[in-house]
Amino acid sequence: MAQLPIALQLFTLRNETKEDFLGTLKKVKELGYDGVEFAGFGGYEASELKAFLEELDLKPFSSHVGIELLEDNADEIIAYHKELGVETMVIPYLVPERRTSKDDYIKLAESLNLYGKKVKEAGMTLCYHNHDFEYEKYDGEYGLDLIFSQTDAELVQVELDTYWAEYAGVSAVDYAAKYKGRLPLAHIKDMADTSDRTFAEVGEGTLDIKGIVAAVQEAGAKRLIVEQDVCQRPPLESVEISIRNLKEILG
Rank of each mutant, 00 (worst) to 15 (best):
82 K>C: 05
85 G>F: 05
85 G>K: 05
85 G>W: 09
85 G>E: 08
86 V>S: 07
86 V>G: 06
87 E>S: 11
87 E>W: 02
89 M>V: 13
91 I>N: 00
92 P>E: 11
92 P>M: 01
94 L>I: 11
95 V>A: 09
95 V>I: 12
96 P>F: 13
96 P>S: 09
97 E>D: 15
97 E>Q: 10
98 R>H: 04
98 R>T: 06
99 R>P: 02
99 R>N: 06
100 T>L: 15
101 S>N: 12
103 D>Q: 13
103 D>G: 06
106 I>F: 11
107 K>S: 05
108 L>P: 02
109 A>I: 06
109 A>H: 11
111 S>R: 14
111 S>F: 06
115 Y>M: 12
117 K>R: 11
117 K>Y: 02
117 K>I: 01
118 K>A: 13
119 V>N: 09
119 V>H: 06
119 V>A: 04
120 K>Q: 12
121 E>I: 11
121 E>A: 13
122 A>R: 04
123 G>A: 00
124 M>R: 07
124 M>D: 09
124 M>G: 02
125 T>H: 04
126 L>M: 03
126 L>D: 04
128 Y>A: 08
130 N>M: 02
130 N>I: 00
133 F>C: 11
134 E>G: 04
136 E>T: 12
136 E>P: 03
136 E>S: 11
137 K>T: 14
138 Y>I: 14
141 E>R: 13
142 Y>R: 10
143 G>R: 12
144 L>G: 05
145 D>S: 14
145 D>L: 09
147 I>C: 02
148 F>T: 07
148 F>W: 05
149 S>F: 08
149 S>N: 15
150 Q>F: 15
151 T>P: 08
153 A>R: 14
154 E>F: 01
155 L>G: 11
156 V>C: 08
156 V>H: 07
157 Q>R: 03
158 V>L: 12
160 L>R: 01
162 T>I: 13
163 Y>S: 04
163 Y>T: 04
163 Y>R: 11
164 W>P: 01
166 E>R: 14
167 Y>G: 15
167 Y>R: 08
168 A>L: 00
168 A>N: 07
168 A>V: 12
170 V>D: 03
170 V>I: 14
172 A>R: 03
172 A>G: 10
172 A>L: 13
174 D>N: 12
174 D>V: 13
176 A>F: 03
176 A>I: 05
176 A>R: 01
176 A>K: 02
178 K>V: 06
180 K>G: 00
181 G>A: 14
181 G>Q: 07
182 R>N: 14
182 R>M: 02
182 R>I: 12
183 L>R: 06
184 P>T: 07
186 A>C: 11
187 H>G: 01
187 H>R: 09
187 H>Y: 08
188 I>G: 03
190 D>A: 14
191 M>R: 00
194 T>Q: 08
194 T>G: 07
195 S>A: 15
195 S>T: 15
196 D>F: 10
197 R>D: 01
199 F>N: 08
200 A>Y: 00
202 V>E: 15
202 V>N: 05
206 T>E: 00
207 L>Y: 10
207 L>D: 06
207 L>H: 11
207 L>R: 01
208 D>K: 13
209 I>C: 09
212 I>Q: 05
212 I>K: 04
212 I>N: 03
212 I>F: 00
214 A>L: 08
216 V>Q: 02
217 Q>T: 10
218 E>D: 15
218 E>C: 11
218 E>S: 10
222 K>D: 08
223 R>P: 00
225 I>W: 02
226 V>I: 09
